[in-house]
Design a protein around this nucleic acid. Structure first.
Lengths: 339, 339
DNA sequence: GTGAAAGCGCTAACAA
DNA sequence: TTGTTAGCGCTTTCAC
């Protein structure tokens, strides 16, 4: 039941293991007739190269480490799927690590992946600041691409959505549909997405009047925070209430929507609600959530491309910070037929 | 920037690489004083064992392959998280593969993982029948645990929820809350979960009268199918309509709920809706979905335990098919304050 | 208790 | 074009 080795194939095809290696790897020209014999023998024996041996010799494992803060964050499964497909298409395997939002665990996982000699690392950092040492260290050893979130000034390539553009799309849409008093429900500055979306809100909201940029409530990126924020706003006098909730992600929007529904507030009649990311749930709530769709497949493809380039030896040129354009997805929570 | 090797540590601590290996692996007694010196040197040089070399020599990579049908199925992220944590706690790394629900791709991924010499395989088969050849083949080479879904008669250990018990919990709950005309919305027989849940419905529904077991509509495990099923049922004469929709998973329930809402049908007043799995969205819809919660952490822990046992050399005893008990989670879609 | 040496399966010089 | 040979870093006999 053991796997056949190069030696077995060599014996079976009557030539040296070097020749077999050359045929199978295509690394050098080999006589057509010999090649045929070798391929036939390899096929017959069910030969599969031993990656461990190959890795030891050629110092490349054909493996990429993928380090995520939390796979249960509903935005990541789609990203992981695209990433896995893109990398597999290049013949690479994916070593997966989930950090549970803990920079300490993240550092350990990165160290372990490095010890396992991954050829490259794809990291969605758990924390803008605390993730930095381990990530920077790793970036000095192997090609590393930062995904979705930043991690301090650029020491690695990065790929993310254009958060400012996405937020602007939302604000334009709200203005065009007659909203006057937007309020931003966000999260404090730990993650780059939080910072950028908030900043974009603050600068874009000036179009709604002098008070609009200041209407900002900060909690975290969770459903619970969405619920709590609505309580705070609707426990206040009616005159102070916003007519649009610009949420920093879909989870906040979903929580807000749930609580508004429980309080009997009409969405979108009385207040519009928007999210960010376009996670699967955003389409399933009642009303469905107007949101900003991240170009997940492109994000993954671009990350894979950057990695391949570095892996191919493009070591000298400057770090790239790629920003991809998002798209607005208008659903019932911001316009039309009532909730 | 290259990693230190055993040789480096040996030189730095003034002894042979064999001794260093023994100290670091603890494989044989070594003089206390020497051991100290070795450990100090290893620490100082930031020594990390090269897994590729170790794998080549000891024919064990410390790596487990995880093969999923579709990470975007909302039930899997939580499972992956628990699995990754359990395996990592044992010092193993996870090689991840997503098959896109395609048994062909699944077979390729399995072959690739085997070529990379994973020590064991964790597989959620994409298809009850079509996945079988590749999975059975793999099970003959390495320890393999089937998760969540079956794959034909037992040639490997398996861990899954007790689908029959879960379905029975739902039926009991519906009977106790006064429902009379349940209808099952399921999927055809490809996956074991589909078969078992349907069979359990058919046998349990006899308590509702002679017609109940026959009220079964089969589509697939999707939101779209939930919507379509509701259209079929509510386009029919009012007298034929069920007062409870027992859905084979949460996605179907969510789709049904959405369409019922659009048609202005009162849930749970006019009809109750139940799901299965307790995916995150189930708690977020309005009304929230009554469902059967899978014991995800226990599922993962049990799978990891089975794997460890086999990896530790327990090769002879019979295959185990572990079934874990689910729990009913009652929410608004089946009882109480109306939708 | 410790060291020398063989070899896991493969690739890459170097020869022929 | 092909074969021979030397390791990659590690574990593990086998001596001492």
């Amino acid at each position: 039941m053991a796997f056949a080795t190069l030696k077995d194939v060599a014996r079976a095809s009557g030539c040296s293991i070097a020749t077999v290696s050359r045929v199978l790897a295509g690394s050098r020209p080999v006589g057509e007739e010999t090649a045929q014999r070798v391929r036939a023998a390899a096929e017959r024996l069910g030969y599969r190269p031993n990656h461990a041996a190959r890795a030891l010799r050629s110092r490349a494992t054909g493996t990429v480490g993928l380090v995520l803060p939390q796979i249960t964050n509903p935005f990541y499964p789609a990203l992981v799927r695209e990433l896995a497909h893109a990398l597999h298409a290049d013949g690479r395997a994916v070593l997966f690590a989930d950090c549970d939002d803990d920079p300490g665990a993240e550092a350990e996982h990165i160290a372990d992946l490095l010890a396992r000699r991954v050829d490259a690392l794809l990291v969605v950092p758990a924390h803008e600041r605390l993730s930095r040492p381990a990530v920077a260290d790793a970036a000095a050893r192997v090609p590393l691409v930062l995904l979705d979130r930043g991690c301090g000034p650029g020491f690695a390539d990065s790929v993310a959505v254009d958060n400012a553009a996405g937020t602007a799309l939302v604000l334009d849409h709200l203005a065009a549909t007659g909203r006057r008093r937007p309020c931003f429900l966000g999260a404090p500055g730990a993650a780059s997405a939080a910072v950028e979306r908030r900043a974009a809100y603050e600068s874009g909201a000036t179009a709604f009047g002098p008070d609009a940029p200041g209407r900002v409530l900060l909690g975290d990126f969770s459903v619970e925070w969405g619920r709590e924020a609505v309580d705070r706003l609707w426990d206040a006098p009616a005159t102070d209430r916003p007519d649009a909730l610009v949420c920093a992600n879909d989870l906040i929007a979903l929580g807000a929507l749930q609580r508004l529904h429980q309080r009997g507030v009409d969405v979108p009649g009385e207040v519009a609600v928007t999210g960010f990311d376009d996670i699967p749930m955003a389409a399933l709530s009642s009303p469905a959530v107007t949101t900003v769709r991240q170009p997940v497949a492109e994000l993954a493809a671009e990350a894979a491309r950057l990695l391949s380039r570095r892996l191919a030896g493009d070591t000298d040129h400057a770090r790239r910070a790629t920003r991809l354009a998002p798209a607005l997805v208008v659903r019932e929570s911001s316009v039309g037929g009532g909730g």
